[in-house]
Simulated scan of single mutants.
Amino acid sequence: MSIKFCDKNLEELYNKGYSKESLEIPKKIFKSFMIALSMAESAASINDVLNPPPFKGLLHENGLITLMLYGGWELSFFLEILGNNQNKISVVSLIFSQNSGGLL
C-alpha cells in the first residue's frame, strides 16, 4: 500500500496514534480512521469503501471519497485501486462537520 497525507498532523496520527494538533480527536474516531484506511487498502473496487457498515460514503465528481464516520466526523481521501493490497491512498482531511449529520 502507498499512502500519502496532505496534512503532516494526519500522517503523525496515522503513524503514532496521536498528533499534537489532533488531541481533540476522540478514540472512537481514531479507530474509525484506521479502519477506513485499512478498508481502502484492501478494496477491490470503489464500491468497497463507499458504504461499508457502519460508515456511509460519497464519491465526488473529482474522485474524492468522503466517508462519514461517527458524530459528525468526515474522512476524505483519493483512492487508486491497483489490487493485491497495493492501492494508492491520498488522505486529504479528517474534519468535524456539524453539517454532516454524523452517525451516532
Rank of each mutant, 00 (worst) to 15 (best):
K31Q: 12
Q98K: 12
K8R: 13
G72Q: 05
L37V: 04
N85R: 15
G71K: 10
D48M: 03
S2Q: 15
K20F: 06
E41Q: 15
L10Y: 06
K56I: 05
A44I: 10
D48F: 03
S90W: 09
N15Q: 15
Y14N: 10
G102I: 01
S76T: 07
L23T: 12
Q86F: 06
F55N: 02
L104T: 11
L23E: 15
K4M: 09
F55H: 03
D7Q: 07
T66P: 01
A40F: 08
E80N: 09
L13N: 00
N87A: 06
F5Y: 07
K8L: 08
F77S: 02
K28D: 08
L82Q: 11
S22Y: 11
K88A: 07
E12D: 13
S93N: 09
F33E: 04
H60T: 11
L75F: 01
K20L: 13
L104K: 15
F55D: 03
E61Q: 13
M1E: 09
M68R: 07
F55G: 03
L37M: 06
K56Q: 11
P26K: 12
K16S: 07
I25R: 02
H60M: 09
D48I: 09
L82E: 12
V49D: 05
E24K: 14
T66F: 02
A36Q: 06
M39S: 09
S22R: 12
L37H: 01
K28V: 12
N62Q: 05
I89R: 11
L59S: 04
G17P: 05
L13Y: 02
N47W: 07
Y70D: 08
